[in-house]
Computed example of a mutant assay.
Amino acid sequence: MTQQDRQRIATGLTEGLSYAEIARRLDRPTSTISREIARNGGPARYRPRRAHQATVQRARRGTPAPPRAAGTPGSAMEDEIVELAVMSGLPRMTARVHVDLLLSANGRRTAAELTRRLKVSPASVSVAVNFLVEHGYVRRERDPRRRRDVYVVDDDAWYHSIVISGRQTLASARAAMAAAQTLGPDSPVGQRLARAGTFLERVISDMVESADRWRSLLR
């Protein structure tokens, strides 16, 4: 667990969230959150920096783990990429699945392979890959011989993810512009929504046009 995770736990406690809700937001088991809080002072005295320092000290007192080769599951390189993906907004389990696919030799994994490699439940993998497929990061193929789905990340996935994200943001922009007309384009709220909608529409249009123009670089 990172110091950022612990800060989010502290924020959740301050907001009065349940352990289950904090766990959901961090994409962690509830038992992990409850142990983390109980081990570090309880809900009233939990301090993220102190908890992180205590964990580091406990780890130093234990037997150090043997170094792992870069690129293997759990390596420092993979962990760093996962953390960057989480900071960009991906749920942690989704980020782990995406990074495992990105670092695979052929960019292909079955659900069973992801479950085995990441040591998580099939349900967790299913939620993660559904999110990735829905947002264009990964595509789903059917293997007729083994009668199972194969999840694929290829170069074109970056293009599709940008286009899908752009469409979703564009829909929000147009909804804001429609609301501005309903509320009155001369009203303060109407003007604010109209400006926001116009800004988003122009930026997203430019982004999608740029993706179309540079798509050939992925091939």
Rank of each mutant, 00 (worst) to 15 (best):
S18P: 00
Y19S: 08
Y19A: 10
A20L: 07
A20D: 12
E21H: 08
E21Y: 02
E21C: 00
E21R: 15
I22R: 02
A23P: 05
R24W: 03
R24E: 11
L26W: 01
D27K: 01
P29Q: 12
P29H: 14
S31V: 15
S31C: 04
S31Q: 14
S31T: 15
T32L: 10
T32Y: 12
T32F: 11
I33K: 08
I33V: 15
S34L: 06
R39F: 11
R39V: 06
R39I: 04
G41P: 06
G41I: 09
G42I: 13
A44H: 12
R45C: 10
R47T: 10
R47M: 09
P48L: 12
P48K: 09
R49D: 14
R50W: 06
A51I: 05
H52L: 04
Q53W: 11
Q53K: 11
Q53T: 14
Q53V: 15
A54I: 08
A54Q: 14
T55A: 15
R58G: 04
R58T: 08
R58P: 03
R61V: 04
R61I: 06
G62K: 05
G62T: 07
T63I: 12
T63R: 15
T63K: 10
P64D: 04
P64I: 05
A65M: 07
A65C: 05
P66M: 08
P67M: 01
A69V: 14
G71L: 01
T72K: 04
P73A: 06
P73Y: 03
P73W: 01
G74K: 03
G74M: 04
M77G: 14
M77Y: 13
E78C: 02
V82M: 00
E83W: 01
A85N: 05
V86Y: 01
V86S: 01
M87F: 03
M87E: 14
S88K: 10
S88C: 05
R92K: 14
R92E: 13
R92W: 06
R92N: 05
M93Q: 10
T94K: 03
T94A: 07
A95F: 03
A95R: 00
A95C: 07
A95S: 10
V97A: 09
V97G: 07
L101N: 06
L102G: 00
S104A: 14
S104C: 02
G107F: 03
G107V: 06
G107N: 02
R108Y: 07
R109S: 12
T110Q: 12
T110H: 12
A111P: 07
A112S: 13
A112W: 07
E113F: 02
E113W: 10
L114I: 08
T115K: 08
R116P: 05
R116W: 08
R116K: 12
R116L: 11
R117L: 14
R117G: 07
R117V: 14
L118Y: 09
L118A: 10
K119Q: 13
K119S: 11
V120T: 11
V120C: 11
S121W: 03
P122T: 09
A123H: 11
S124I: 02
V125W: 06
A128Y: 07
A128L: 11
V129W: 06
N130A: 15
F131A: 12
F131I: 06
V133G: 03
E134F: 09
